[in-house]
Structures are given as C-alpha cells and as structure tokens.
C-alpha cells in the first residue's frame, strides 16, 4: 500500500498503474484511511501502555501543580491556582533556585568536559593500535553500571578517612588538599560531577566512534592528495562529517544532565544543606519526602517545559532530516 505514496515504485508495477488511472487525491485519502485501520492493531496496545503509564503521568504533573495535596488518599486535593508557581518564582522556595542553578551548572559542565574528553578518546581510539578493544572496554564499562551503584562506589572513594582520594593525596604529600569531598557544600556538587564524568564518557565515546565511521575515507584521501595536512583534514573533512553526531551527543548530554537523579540520591541525597539539590530530585523530594505533591508538580512542570523546549525542535529537525 505504501507503494502508492512512494516515489521509487517500479514503473511497471500494477499498483503504480492503478494509482495513475484513478484520481490521485481521492485514491490517496482512501489509502490513508485503509492503512490507518490496518495499523491500529499494531499501534493500539503500545500506545495505550505508553499513554497511560508515561505520557499521562507527565501531563498529570501539570494538573497537580495547581492543587495543594499531601498525596495521602484520605485528603482531597484543594485548588490553589498559581500559588505553587508564585512560591517558586518569588523566592519563597530558595531550594528550588539552588536546584535550578545546580542543574544549569551541571548542563554547562557536561557540555564542556565529558563531551570534549569523549571526542578526544574517540579520535585516539579510532586509530589502529595494540590493545584498542581493551582500551575501549575500560572506558565503556562504567556505563553499564547502574548509576546508583556508581554512587555507592564513589561514596566509598570519597570517604574522608579511608577513601582512595584522600589517601592518594596524603600518599603524594598533598595533605592540605584532602577534603570532605561530599561533606563540603562548596564542592560536593563537583565531586558528584566527577563520578558522572567517569561513568558517562564511555557512552559518548562510542557515539563519536560510530560517527567517525561515517567520515568518508575517499574524502580524507582526496584531501591528502591535494596536500592538506592533519589539522586541515580534521577541520575541513572530519568536523563537517561529524556534525550530526555532535548534535546527537549534545542533545543527549543536555537531556541526561537534566535527568541526573540516582547519582545525587546515592551520594548526598541533595545535601549537605541542599547544596547538591537538582531539579529532578527536588521535584521528587517535594512530593514524596515533604508530602507536597502540588509543589512537586510545579517543579516537575518547570522541568517538563525546559525539556520540551530542547526536545521538540530537535525532533522536528531529526524527523524532517530523514524525509521519505
């Protein structure tokens, strides 16, 4: 059926001939309706599950954000209009701003540091060398660990007296650098970020490696024949060919930064003194620890809006790009 709307239908195919005979407009509409009915059995179970357990809860957060509710079944939610948002944006909830600020810092750092690192690793490991697969594995393996597990590991590594970081610093005579890595409100967020870099670089590296396979070798050869040198080839051949990969990695990095949750829960729980609070965790804490589903919903709505502002343009770009 798809043949009708597909340009590359073979010239002699009977359906093609049929399509030419009938009036194109009517024919097309009828075909669309038929394909839609045929598609329903394949689409409906999936769409129902997805809609009911994912899409609807996401949108329901917006509804809840207009109510005040403890989350207990015995209590009825009361409508409070925009009050929850007023609290957020007038500074009545200082933790929200701290969380917002931390999420922004996290996004900025994540775009700068792990992206650069993973690109460098991918470029280096794209060469043929001894032990290449072993290297790739070492950098990738942290990515298959659960974030909550990585958090538990790093909590031990950061342990003030027995942890590896402080012991290594003492061992090389930098005693004054030893820290309460997760206990100092000024640096705790960055300590968590280091664990995130350790875990996340491998995945981006694999994406970049995949992107590098797309760099046409003929182009590199041609550039060389024209006398281009290494840096020039990199700038004028490799970088343009990597552009789609850059966009994918960038979007995924930003989205994943907004999703940071497990690592913070596992390493500091948002503390000390809410200094490592992030939006995703604050929404959760407001609902489930502070029994304030309305406030939690408002934070979730802010997070939803930020995510959609990033995701929707990206999706339009991605889906337009692969036009049929």
């Amino acid at each position: 059926m798809s043949v009708i709307e597909h340009k590359e239908a073979p010239e002699g195919s009977p359906r093609r001939a049929l399509a030419r005979q009938t009036k194109p407009g009517r024919r097309q509409r009828g075909a669309h309706r038929n394909t839609f009915i045929a598609a329903l059995p394949y689409l409906v179970p999936t769409a129902l599950l997805y809609g009911y357990f994912l899409l609807y809860p996401m949108l329901d957060s917006v509804r809840i954000s207009f109510y005040e509710w403890s989350g207990f079944r015995t209590q009825e939610p009361t409508w409070v209009g925009l009050e929850n948002y007023v609290r957020l944006f007038t500074g009545a909830d200082p933790v929200f701003w701290k969380a917002f600020q931390n999420s922004v810092i996290w996004v900025a750092l994540a775009v700068l540091i792990p992206m650069t690192l993973s690109l460098l690793l991918a470029l280096a490991l794209n060469r043929k060398m001894i032990g290449r697969n072993l290297f790739r594995s070492v950098f990738y393996i942290p990515a298959v660990f659960a974030s909550i597990t990585v958090a538990a590991m790093w909590r031990w590594i950061y342990n003030p007296t027995l942890g590896a970081v402080n012991q290594v610093l003492e061992g090389i005579g930098l005693d004054s650098w030893t820290q309460q890595w997760l206990g100092n409100p000024k640096i705790a967020l960055y300590s968590i970020f280091v664990a995130a870099v350790w875990q996340g670089v491998g995945f981006n590296m694999v994406l970049f490696l995949a992107g590098l396979q797309q760099v046409p070798p003929e182009l590199v050869e041609a550039a060389k024949l024209d006398g281009a040198r290494g840096p020039q080839i990199f700038r004028h051949v490799t970088v343009p060919a990597l552009r789609p990969t850059f966009v994918v990695v960038l979007i995924l990095t930003i989205i994943n930064s907004l999703k940071v949750f497990d690592l913070v829960v596992g390493m500091t729980g948002g503390g000390p003194a809410q200094s490592t609070q992030v939006l995703a965790l604050w929404s959760y804490s407001q609902s489930f620890s502070n029994h304030n589903f309305g406030q939690g919903g408002a934070v979730a709505t802010v997070l939803l809006v930020i995510s959609l502002c990033l995701v929707v343009p990206y999706l339009i770009w991605a889906l337009k790009g692969e036009e049929d």
Binding site: L54, D60, S61, K259, A280, A300, V311, Y314
Partner: peptide, 16 residues
C-alpha cells in the same frame, strides 16, 4: 517520552 526526565512523571505515576 524518551527524552523527558522520568522524574516528571513519578508523582502522578505513584497515584495511578
């Protein structure tokens, strides 16, 4: 749905 943080849905999901 794959790109919005799942934490957005957790409160209502609990209710559901």
């Amino acid at each position: 749905g794959s790109m919005v943080p799942i934490q957005v849905a957790l409160g209502p999901l609990f209710n559901t």
